[in-house]
């Protein structure tokens, strides 16, 4: 609901991964491949990005040993990617996009295209760039403890509702 569809997150992602030199080189001299994409439908505007599944379908599909879980984050080592698209096909969310690199070629000189997806800014000291640049703070990094706390809060609230309903029932019977 906070997302206003401005796509600053997509630019932040590219700047974080490519580095600030992209503003200094020739405009055709860098790759612009955001790892998340803002989707706009009738009902919603929101970025879609990798959910770092516990049992990643992409990792199961990859025959090149390019996808691994590192510190709880699902990472694609694109140097190993043969571009077979199996991971992109496997991801139920479409969070993996095939992209053509301007900065690298295959050994035979042909253009190199690899699988591209959110890596939680693993090698950035400040963490995910997207949530840092979002003007409405619509993005949030969800950690395991957040999930635990959410479950705890929701369950307590559910218990509270049940107690309230029970009390009302008793009052109705009593009256």
């Amino acid at each position: 609901m906070l997302c206003i569809g401005c796509r600053t997150c997509m630019i932040g992602c590219v700047v974080a991964h490519e580095g600030k030199h992209i503003f200094e080189v020739d405009p055709d001299g860098y790759d612009f491949h955001p790892k998340l994409k803002v989707i706009k439908t009738f009902n919603v505007s929101v970025p879609v990005q990798c959910k770092h599944c516990e049992a990643p379908a992409c990792m199961a599909a990859c025959k090149s040993d390019a996808i691994h879980i590192v510190n709880g984050t699902v990472i694609i080592r694109t140097e190993k990617c043969i571009g077979c698209k199996s991971c992109a096909e496997a991801c139920p969310f479409g969070a993996i996009q095939m992209v053509t690199l301007g900065s690298a070629r295959n050994a035979d000189g042909a253009p190199r295209s690899v699988a591209n997806k959110c890596d939680l800014c693993q090698d950035q000291p400040k963490g995910p760039a997207c949530l840092r640049v979002c003007p409405t703070a619509a993005l949030r990094l969800v950690k395991e403890e957040d999930l635990g706390q959410t479950l705890k809060n929701k369950r307590l609230a559910t218990l509270g509702l049940a107690l309230g309903a029970e009390a009302q029932k008793q009052a109705a019977i009593g009256a």
């Binding site: 609901m1 989707i39 919603v44 992109a88 139920p92 969310f93 479409g94 993996i96």
Partner: peptide
Amino acid sequence: TDVNEERKKKNIAAAEALAVIN
């Protein structure tokens, strides 16, 4: 299969799901 076409459909479903969650 065209991965880009399939991705678009999956993205829309994923976005709608996020709307439900929020």
